[in-house]
């Protein structure tokens, strides 16, 4: 088993992209949660926490932007920051994602166009009228692994690839998988992390109606770059930490909430990784980062600097 180093971090949050700056702002009490000025202002929420990112400089074709779900925009920016300039062949990417992206209301429009004069759904109308209203790529937008696919395409990541579906534990679970892949020699360099977004007005409204009114809808992506410690040393890379352990388990009794949710909003599958990256930006010499979901999934990693 090889020792695995963290040699890069990247994040996109409502308080910025530089983990050290974001941590300083958080410790100063700054919040990325702001009152929206659009229709979301009417919602009973503390505010929304939106990340300001411009993904266009990283895209192969500027027109690709229209294909990207919001979480993919965040993920591309954060993954590129974590990756840095050392780009060997077959870099892997393991990503934790949350709720499936929506099809942007395409299916709803198709359904509503297929009601007969009495307001009853007509399968025949659905086939004849609803179908042409459904954009060809709409169904693909809803696939969770499309976020990873977009990152892989834009950054040319052809190695180990996999998407973990879940909620708050999914991002760290992807990190655990990345750690195993590098430690066991199945991959040399892996980007691992999570991405999620709830700030779209329709999603924010839905969350309130579904009972999440106490939370500020947020969004974030967080990635770490993992590689063998020996490789990192050989290329003179800065080693931020060494992974000492990690795992996942079914723990329905556990409850977890992001330490920074009040200032960064609810960030779903990215939350656990973002919290950990902020730990790495701090002064602790070691730690255990973990996150869990109400569904019972739990993921954790243990790390240290002392053994570097």
């Amino acid at each position: 088993m090889r020792r695995v180093a963290v040699t890069g971090v990247g994040m996109a949050t409502a308080l910025g992209r530089d983990p050290w700056e974001v941590l300083a702002l958080l410790l100063q009490g700054r919040s990325g949660v702001v009152r929206p000025t659009d229709e979301r202002a009417l919602l009973p929420i503390p505010g929304v926490a939106e990340a300001e990112v411009d993904v266009r400089p990283l895209l192969k074709r500027r027109k690709d932007k229209k294909l990207l779900p919001r979480a993919a925009e965040l993920a591309i920016v954060a993954a590129a920051d974590a990756l840095g300039d050392d780009r060997p062949e077959d870099i892997g990417i393991l990503l934790g994602v949350g709720r499936e992206p929506t099809d942007g209301g395409a299916s709803e429009r198709a359904i509503l166009s297929s009601l007969d004069g009495d307001g009853v759904f007509s399968p025949a109308l659905f086939g004849a009228v609803g179908l042409p209203l459904y954009p060809p790529l709409a169904s693909l937008r809803t696939l969770p692994n499309l976020i990873l696919a977009h990152v892989a395409i834009q950054l040319d990541l052809t190695g180990e690839g996999g998407t973990r579906a879940g909620a708050e534990a999914a991002g760290l679970a992807a990190v655990v998988e990345g750690w195993h892949a590098v430690a066991e020699g199945r991959a040399e360099v892996v980007l691992a992390g999570g991405a999620d977004s709830f700030v779209d007005p329709a999603l924010a409204r839905d969350r309130v109606r579904q009972g999440f009114s106490g939370q500020a809808p947020g969004e974030a992506a967080g990635f770490v770059r993992l590689e063998p410690l020996d490789r990192a040393r050989a290329r003179g890379a800065e080693v931020l930490a060494v992974l000492d352990g990690g795992g996942t388990r079914f723990a329905p009794e556990e409850r977890w909430r992001s330490e920074w949710e009040g200032q960064l909003g609810a960030c779903g599958a990215a939350a656990g990784v973002v919290d950990w990256i902020l730990d790495l930006a701090g002064v602790s010499s070691s730690g255990r980062a973990w996150s869990a979901e109400d569904t019972g999934a739990l993921a954790y990693v243990t790390w240290s600097r002392a053994r570097v």
Partner: peptide, 24 residues
């Protein structure tokens, strides 16, 4: 959600070890 069946199976057999849901 994609992970519903994972948790359902874990509960059904009493599994408390590693869990994962791959959505690819």
């Amino acid at each position: 959600a994609p992970h519903w069946q994972t948790l359902r199976v874990a509960q059904a057999v009493g599994a408390l070890g590693a869990t994962a849901t791959h959505a690819t």
